[in-house]
Design a protein around this nucleic acid. Structure first.
Lengths: 351, 351
DNA sequence: CTGAAAGCGCTAACAC
DNA sequence: GTGTTAGCGCTTTCAG
């Protein structure tokens, strides 16, 4: 909310000694017109080299910095990219996966002329976000929602270039023009399962994620693929909600079934951590009795005892790729609509 | 297919996809001048209520959104706040403490008309960041650097309102006009030490942080305070660099001294986690032989075995407070130059 | 309390 | 190649 003071709002007494030079000042100093300076600043090639030099010198002398607002107003481009974070994600902002994506995005954008604008999408007032995005205040948007696959912003895609992180849940008509970057959850999960098999395990269970989230679905699919291709029984399935507690519960149910289990693939590390608890409480040891593989490669896996074998996601790379894709779209360069990043199995002591 | 709508059906069928309406269009529709619309939009009270209503209606009808660039150009305010992240911090971006700060900042700013601009300060090209900040592209900046206390941006404070996260390291002249929000590291550390004492421990060691970082200094100071106020020996000091490995090493050195140790305060949770390792390797148990307290309350503490007693930092609150402070400065409202937030001891099973 | 007019700093046709 | 000329959409004196 903007604070409106009744008093004639005493403007900041800044700008004391630091007068920000304008393009006009540069033009005067270099002895050319403003248009020419603009050309030089924007890298137009159709300027005499000597003039480019003169202008460049003047810019350096004056310590000139273009005014983004003016540039944006005149060019009708903002050079701003929004990173939209659903409020629910924000609550678990400390999710290292998400944090890494932000990092990747920021790192890539730092090399471009685009500026990163973090927007927390208020769920109370979704319209505020939509309005902001549609109000010509940004050139494009990145939408992240780790597990949920919520693409409620897809509609905006018609008016504003958008790139999503993660595969959309619904494969509707709109999917055809939805750009997204995703991790290859199916292949990663299959690799995890194959690793267990290679370790000699035969009764392999899965603690799957919610089936209304793409990663939940895909990781289960990958596990099934591997099991079936080896002719193994793929019926040891229990579901969790990606939380540690749900992992403990699911593992408990698996154990209660009574049948043999010598390996478990958990759809994320947090559930794997939860499973550890249930396994230990049952008096079993990891990996001797039951080998465990997780997915995500977050801190749960690293600090667990024993350290967890897990599927690493290229989260920074995901952010970088999202940013690259969006910039390409904005600038009209061709890019694949769908990008799938490879995962990597990190073998530690739980298998 | 069903489309989730959170706004009433668009009154005008061509509303979507059409060029965004300008203030002028609103003025025409409301039958007033652009100046008046501007006043209404900016919340001036000196407008007839009925006119305010008419304008508001027109704005709603047209789905008008002010153009930030134009507004900024004319008003010479950008409504943008930069969040500067040193590149070195970015590398450990997954630091949950840092992530929470960002979250707090974003949450608070979402309630204002300010926009959050994440800037990764390239250490290769620090001038790029400085130029951006000084180029009139932002109204103020927030600088975060978890442990380092690096206030190399302090100089910019003369021209641009800046608020730092964390106490500055150097108490130079410039400190007098440096605004910052910090956690009460001294009090928190003292509380941790007192807690160990209350648990009956008498030979309490400390794994201190680097003494060139304010939190490293302050937490050691707090521990000393508590020890001295109880007349306990305060010589069991070893230093680490906040990393788990350094915690293990420091604990090892402590143990090697040969004297009795029944309690340890580690200046952060990661070092505490490292200390766990050394303690276990020495065949000792936590908390029976040695009670351990950490600082930060990050995931290391939660997932450790046994769960770590630690000092919780209000990291989201820190972000919120930083944002509040900066906005106040920008808008000329009075705020304290220094804000110190209280920590809270979280007692778990390691003590 | 409201309108008219003058830019904010820059880009983009269009001339020269 | 380079200069000229119009604005981009909004805020802001300054009249009335």
């Amino acid at each position: 909310m903007e604070v409106v003071t009744d008093e004639p709002a005493a403007p900041t007494p800044d700008a004391a000694g630091t007068a920000v030079p304008t393009l006009e000042a540069v033009a005067a100093r270099a002895g050319v017109s403003r248009a020419t300076v603009s050309r030089v600043v924007n890298g137009s090639t159709r300027v005499k080299p000597e003039i480019i030099e003169a202008v460049t010198a003047a810019i350096a002398d004056l310590n000139y910095v273009p005014n983004r607002a003016a540039r944006s107003l005149a060019s009708r481009r903002t050079q701003v990219i929004a990173l939209v974070v659903p409020e629910s994600t924000a609550r678990v902002f400390a999710d290292p996966f998400f944090a890494s994506i932000v990092q990747g995005v920021a790192l890539h954008l730092a090399e471009t002329d685009y500026t990163l604008n973090m927007v927390i999408a208020s769920e109370m007032n979704p319209d505020k976000t939509r309005r902001y995005l549609m109000g010509g205040n940004v050139d494009g948007a990145l939408v992240v929602s780790h597990h949920s696959g919520d693409h409620s912003y897809a509609r905006l895609g018609a008016t504003l270039p958008i790139v999503f992180g993660g595969r959309p849940l619904d494969v509707g008509d709109e999917e055809n023009d939805t750009y997204f970057v995703d991790v290859d959850n199916v292949a990663g999960a299959a690799e995890a399962a194959r690793h267990l098999i290679a370790r000699g395990r035969r009764s392999i269970a899965v603690i799957a994620g919610p089936q209304d989230m793409p990663p939940g679905v895909d990781r289960l699919t990958g596990w099934r693929q591997a099991m079936e291709e080896q002719g193994l029984d793929a019926s040891l399935v229990e579901y969790g909600d990606f939380s540690p507690a749900s992992g403990t519960a699911a593992m408990g149910r698996l154990l209660k079934r009574g049948g043999p289990i010598d390996g478990v693939f958990a759809a994320n590390d947090q559930m794997a951590a939860g499973a550890y608890l249930a396994i230990h409480e049952a008096g079993l040891t990891i990996p001797d009795d039951i080998a465990v593989v997780g997915f995500d490669d977050d801190y749960f896996g690293l600090t667990a005892t024993p350290p967890l074998t897990t599927v690493h996601q290229p989260s920074i790379g995901l952010g970088v790729r999202m940013a690259q894709t969006l910039v390409a779209r904005i600038e009209g360069t061709h890019v694949e609509r769908v990008t799938t990043l490879d995962t990597e199995l990190v073998v530690r002591q739980s298998t």
